[in-house]
Computed example of a mutant assay.
Amino acid sequence: MSSTDKQAAGQTAATAYWTVGPGKGGLRREDLPAPGAGEALVRTLFSGISKGTELVVHNARVPECVAAEMAAPHQEGTFPSPVKFGYLSVGVVEQGPAEWQGRTVFCLHPHQDRYVVPVESLTVVPDDVPARRAVLTGTVETAVNGLWEAGPRLGDRVAVIGAGLVGGMVAKLLGAFPLGRLQLIDVDPAKRAFAGTLGVDFSHPDDALPDCDIVIHCSASQEGLERSLQLVGDEGDVIEMSWYADRKVTLPLGEDFHARRLSIRASQVGVVARARRHRRTNADRLKLAVSLLNDPGFDVFLTGQSPFEELPEVVQRLSDGTLDALCHVIEYPSTEATR
């Protein structure tokens, strides 16, 4: 079918990033249908790379037993590959219901320059939130869910272990709580400046203060989880927000774990935390997350930007460690440039 015939049939050309093999990714062209009733055509402005999960996919390390649970909302293909994966996308509605047209929206969609989705999949980005910053909506949502799971109380002593994207985001949100103490803990001394930007106290694991009411673990390391058990107080809670993919983790549960009646509880963003599940939907959680991004302080999490055509190279550089980032932003060409 020629390009003229496709336009007559209501089809729109799109380009998407696919993981095509272990450690390999590339851009692929595809045709989109015209949006149907209750659907919207979105032109992407920015997307963000969620480094931890996306590199697990890039390196073909998603365990088969959880492949279905780890699928992104609008993923195509299956793990390990070929698969179109990602979930931090911000764009403008070009076609769809009248009340949606021209709106800037967030969507849990893979890296793709245009896509058609049901309008129920879209979250309106408020006017006071820049589109570039709005790519963080999915990460803020993860942090909100973790805090709903943890349930910090007035005067609590809280530690967050792991000053990466998720850990930093959790610490950023906790900074607004009336806590008795909050420490962001990491083995990298360079993270001290990052913590200072967030307005949070920083500590190396060896110097961290013990007897915490809650420890939120985000370092995705066995050592970090072990230290979490040491820092949490008797009958305290460790909230595990790391995902280890196919790695095995060994813990010293034969020491004082039972005597001190400690708890390790997982937090995963796929469902609303149990403490709020009967009162909040996933859409409510996303709406809350994007509204919080009116704070310019979140810009510290956006640590680089590259054009869409360089995305395969960027993912590879993140994977091999030659590019360091919290959230690396991908910028898409404008409508005029695309034409």
Rank of each mutant, 00 (worst) to 15 (best):
Q7M: 15
A13W: 04
W18M: 11
G26C: 10
R28E: 08
E30S: 14
D31C: 07
P33M: 14
A37Y: 09
G38L: 11
E39A: 07
G48I: 04
E54K: 12
L55D: 04
A72W: 09
H74Q: 15
Q75H: 09
G86D: 00
E94V: 09
Q101R: 13
G102F: 08
G102Y: 03
R103C: 03
H111G: 07
Q112K: 08
P118M: 06
P118D: 05
P126V: 04
D128E: 12
R132D: 07
R133F: 07
A134V: 07
T139I: 14
V140W: 02
E141F: 06
A143N: 03
V144G: 04
V144F: 10
L147P: 02
W148L: 10
D156S: 05
D156L: 03
I161T: 06
G162W: 01
G164M: 00
G167Q: 01
K172P: 06
L184E: 02
R192L: 10
F194I: 08
L198H: 02
D201H: 11
L209C: 09
D211I: 10
H217Y: 15
S219E: 06
S221F: 02
Q222G: 13
G224C: 07
R227F: 01
Q230I: 06
V232T: 08
G233K: 05
G236M: 04
G236N: 06
W243T: 09
A245K: 02
D246F: 07
V249S: 09
P252W: 05
G254F: 12
G254V: 15
F257P: 01
I264Y: 03
R265K: 11
S267Y: 02
Q268L: 15
V269D: 02
V269T: 11
V272S: 01
H278T: 12
H278N: 12
H278S: 15
V290R: 01
S291A: 13
D299W: 11
V300C: 08
F301L: 04
T303G: 10
G304L: 06
Q305S: 15
V315D: 05
R317N: 03
L318S: 06
D320V: 08
I330W: 01
E331H: 14
E336C: 14
